[in-house]
Amino acid sequence: MSPPAKDVSRRGFLAALKPQNVALAVAGSTVWAYVTGESRASVPARRPPGARDESAFLASCIKCSQCVEACPYDTLQVATAGDGEAIGVPYFEPRKVPCYMCPDTPCIAACPTDALLPDTPIEEAEMGLAVLVDQENCLAYKGLRCEVCYRACPLIGRAIGLEFRPNERTGKHALFIPVVNSDACTGCGRCEHACVLEEAAIKVLSVEQARGKLGENYRFGWLEDAEISPDFEAPMAAPDLPQWRDGLERVLEQMDDLSGIEEP
């Protein structure tokens, strides 16, 4: 009788652990890892509300497209092969369809893996960040009364405000410059969608692209809560105060001595 098939395959599996095969497996995995790494889109996309940080989002999204199905405005799209986005992962293009910021966030509710963090209030979403990327073509910078992005913003006055500046070309008018407050902006893209130019001057970039990062060493004296904290360690020790006082007293004594000298 031949041994059961299970044993044959198990023995075959152990026999396959030859150095040559292990090397093949390592080489194959390396190529695999490389291809997988390359298949991530180079430019991070605009993600659904509540999405984890881009790398955590790409890892935890199971690519089931349930958020896409749940979106009542067909804002969310599935990236298929050749779209230039990470394949199968949801994204949106605000110039085509922006996010209308449903208060009940059906997309987040649909997510089975919590790649879209549950119970994220829509006004705290960071789908991206609006940036007025093209000041040369923005009508407001030309002195025209446009403000369409400002009025389209669902958080008008909070996420996009207007800043008045003198119009130096005419010398007597004002420029109404739209200014994004990055703390309030959710990246919904209503501004980019509404921009009247042929190509939008205000665009929603991914948060990773749009945000700078301040070094830890900066302290701003004009901000009340920006005092040097008790655990701040200065790189050089400051001079000891008693020594200063001694020195000061010595100088004052000398000045007293000098005061006794009559002027010529």
Binding site: W32, T36, R40, L58, A59, I62, V78, T80, A81
Partner: peptide, 28 residues
């Protein structure tokens, strides 16, 4: 674990076939 994304899911021809059949045929 190394790449930080589900390795087979990112290249899976099964998922790709399914997705292309539902969301319109593409390169997949």
């Amino acid at each position: 674990a190394i790449t930080g994304v589900a390795a087979f899911e990112w290249l899976s021809p099964i998922a790709m076939t399914h997705r292309e059949l539902i969301y319109g045929p593409g390169l997949g």
